[in-house]
Design a protein around this nucleic acid. Sequence first.
DNA 1: TAACAGTTTTTAATAATAAAGCGCAGACGG
DNA 2: CCGTCTGCGCTTTATTATTAAAAACTGTTA
Lengths: 300, 300
Amino acid sequence: MARSDTRYRQAYNRLLDFCGTLPVGASVPAETELGEIANVSRTVIRRCLSRLEERKVISWDGREKRLLRRPTDADRVELADSRVSTADLEQRFLDWVLRFDVPADTPLSVAELSRTFGVPQHELKEFLAGLSRFGLVARRRQGGWMLRGFTRDFAVELSDFRAVLELNAVEQAAEAPVDHPIWPRLEALRAEHLDLAARIDSDFHAFSKLDETFHKTINSVVRNRFIEEFQKVISLIFHYHYLWDKTEEKDRNAAAIAEHLAIIDALEARDADAAREAARRHLRTSKTTLLSSLRHHELG
Amino acid sequence: MARSDTRYRQAYNRLLDFCGTLPVGASVPAETELGEIANVSRTVIRRCLSRLEERKVISWDGREKRLLRRPTDADRVELADSRVSTADLEQRFLDWVLRFDVPADTPLSVAELSRTFGVPQHELKEFLAGLSRFGLVARRRQGGWMLRGFTRDFAVELSDFRAVLELNAVEQAAEAPVDHPIWPRLEALRAEHLDLAARIDSDFHAFSKLDETFHKTINSVVRNRFIEEFQKVISLIFHYHYLWDKTEEKDRNAAAIAEHLAIIDALEARDADAAREAARRHLRTSKTTLLSSLRHHELG
DNA sequence: TAACAGTTTTTAATAATAAAGCGCAGACGG
DNA sequence: CCGTCTGCGCTTTATTATTAAAAACTGTTA
C-alpha cells in the first residue's frame, strides 16, 4: 500500500549507465548533480546511492564517493511493468462509449472501468470529473457516476455549440492576413476535395478523415485554449457518428464535399458574409446528419 | 481506513423517528420498505435493525419484527461531524485565487488546500481535474498541480471566448418570440439601469451586481449545457476584476450603463445588426477593463 | 408464486503508508 | 570564512488496504 518505486528504479539504472562512463576509482559527483543527471530529487538519488554502496559498486563516506568497480548488467533492477498508456484515456473512453453504443443513463462503475482500461481507479475518477464539465457524465446522488450519454438533447446542444465556435472561426479565417499558414493549407485541401470528388463512387469512405482535417484546419486560426479543449471532444464525436450512419453515405459525402468547396471558395475570395453563409449551411447539414444517425441507432 | 458510516447513522435515527410513529407492539414493515423510507439499501437497514434489536427496541425473528418499546432520545446515535459544504467548492476556490491574488504558476498543494477548505483530498483532486479542462490549473510532470493562473494570455482568451458566446446570445435574443420571458426582464433591467444612472454619483458601486444580472439575462436565452458551464466561471472572474479596478470606477460604470442601454434598445427594436454591434462595443470595453485591471495588479 | 430474509459479491470512500520532495543547520574543503 | 554539500527530519503525493454501502443472488415461507 504505497506508491510504486518506478521512479527510483529508473533513476538507479540511469545512474548505473552514468557510472559506466566513469573510470574505476573516479569520484562520483555530488547528490545535487546526480539529481540533475537522472532528473529526480535528491531523496531518490540517496536511495540509489545506498543501494550502490550496498552492492559495492561505490564507496560512500560523507561527500567522498568513489567508483569501486565497473557496473554490470546483473546490477540493474527490473522496472516492473509498462503501465498501459494513460495519456489517451480520453480517446479510449469516448471510443468505448461510442463504439459499444453505451446507452444514456448507464451507471458507470469505476472499478469495472478501471479493469477494462487498465488504469488505476483514482485516475479514472479524475478523468470522469473532468468529463463531467462537458456534461457527458455526472455524479449520482448515492455515489458513483453515470453516463448522461448521447441523448438527442446532448447532440442538439453539441451541434449548436459547435456551430457557434466554427462560425467564429470562419469569420476570423476570412480576415486572416495573406501570409497566414491557413491559405496554403486551404489550397491543398481544395485539391484533395476535388480529387476525392472525382473518385467518390469508389472511395467515399475516405471522406470522414478529410472532413476532420478540414474542420481542424478552419479552427486552427483561432488560438484559444477553451475552444481547443472542446474541439477535441467535438471532432471525435462527429467523426464517429459520421462513420456510423451508412444511409446514403455516398450522396451525403458528395454533398458535403461541395459544401466544403463552397466555404473554401468564399474564404479565398475573402468574402466573409458568403463564407459565413456557406459554413452555416454546412453546419446545418452536419447537425441533421448527426441527429439522423442517432435516430437510426435508437431504432436499430 | 474505511468510508464513514454517516449513512448508517442517519438511517438509524430516521428509523427511530419512524418507530416513534408506530404503536408499541406493532409489527415493523419489511426491510425493503424500510429501505425506501430511509432511502438507503437493505444492507444498511439490516445493520440498523441489528442495533435496534440489540438495544431491545424491537424483537426480530426472521420476518417477524415487533416494536417492543417507544424509542427515546438516548437511543439516538451521534452523527459525528457536519462536513463543511462541499457544494460551492468552486466558488470558494476561485474566490481564494482571485482574492489573494495567487500568482500564476504557483504550485498547489492538495494537502494544504484540503486543510484550508476543509474538504477531503480526493474531492479536491477531482475538482482540480475538472478545472484543468478550463486551463486554469494543470498537472505538473512530477506529480501535483499548479495554478496556470490568471495571466494576460488567459484573460485575453477568456474575453474572446466570452465575446463569441455572448454575441451568439445577443443574436438569439433578437430573434426571441414576443412571449419569451426575456422581454419583461429586459424592460425591468432598463428601469434599473436608468434608476442607477440617475444616482450614479453616490451609488456607482452597485453597478457590479447589475452588470452580472444583465449578462446573465442575455445569456439565459441560450439553453446549452456547455455554454452554461462556462458562463459560471466567466461571470465570476469578470465580476471580481470589475470590483478591483478602482481607477475611474464611476466613469467606467456610467459608460457601461449607457452601453447596456444601447443593447437593450437595439434588442427591443428587434434590430439584430444594431444589437450585435452594440454588444461588440460593450464587450470590447469589458476586455479593456479586464486587462487594465490586470496591469494595475501587476504593478501594485 | 410473490414477497421476503439470508447470503454473497461488487463497488466506492477513506485512512494508512511508502515514496518522493523540500529545506535548514551544520560540516567540510578550499 | 565563505560557499558548497550532506544529513536529517518534516511535508506532500500517489497508491493500496480496508471497510461501509449497494447490488445481486438464493432459498424460504405465507
